[in-house]
Amino acid sequence: MSFFKSIWFRCISCLLAIALISGGLLTILSNLLYVSPEERTSRAMAKIYGAPVEVSAENIIVDIDSDDASKSSPITSNYGELQKIYKVNVNGESFDMVFQAQGNNGYKGGTITLWVKVVFENNLPIKIDKVILQSSDKQTLMSKIGGDFYNRFTLDDVTEDYKNGKVFTGNQKDTANILNPVSGATYSANAGNNAVNCVIDYCWGTN
């Protein structure tokens, strides 16, 4: 009986009560505020196109969140993997392809996931039109990577280089490829470059 009046019991029961109430509250809130993969995708599409875009089932080429087993496997390469590939704005042989690409070899072996929009005409890739950030893993210096880094991928002068087998690199000494470094976040920039390189590899088939 004395145990129930002891300070030990009071301490443990107080901490347990707070933990239980907090846990219960957070369980309810995490269910209410859950962001599904579909919602994340539609947010990204809205960011790319400025308005929500619906993708019909036949225009989904790859989607790792899909229940369809034939579409749920990512396309892997040396640079990373393509986790989602959608055909959007299909108008005969002209359309956009939107990729969710995860680039490898970032800081501490982490990754960066980008959305990349490629414009196709006559079934041929014309240029990378837009690149936006989806998420990053283990990259603590993402705030250093600004709009200039993403815009570099969409410049007209580099499109010809993709066709000639060039890819993006953050390495200043690697002059054979297209330089796109970020001072102070070179590893993270490397992962970002690799995400786009996955797309270049898929569209232009350089390697």
Binding site: R10, C14, L15, A19, L25, L29, L33, V35
Partner: peptide
């Protein structure tokens, strides 16, 4: 809250509200 466990109790309370802020901002 007993004074012996006040710091862990405060951290539990703070962590709960930080998680709520995270969930709301993410959504």
């Amino acid at each position: 809250i007993p004074s012996q466990v006040r710091i862990p109790a405060f951290v539990l309370i703070i962590a709960t509200f930080v998680t709520i802020v995270r969930l709301v901002l993410e959504k």
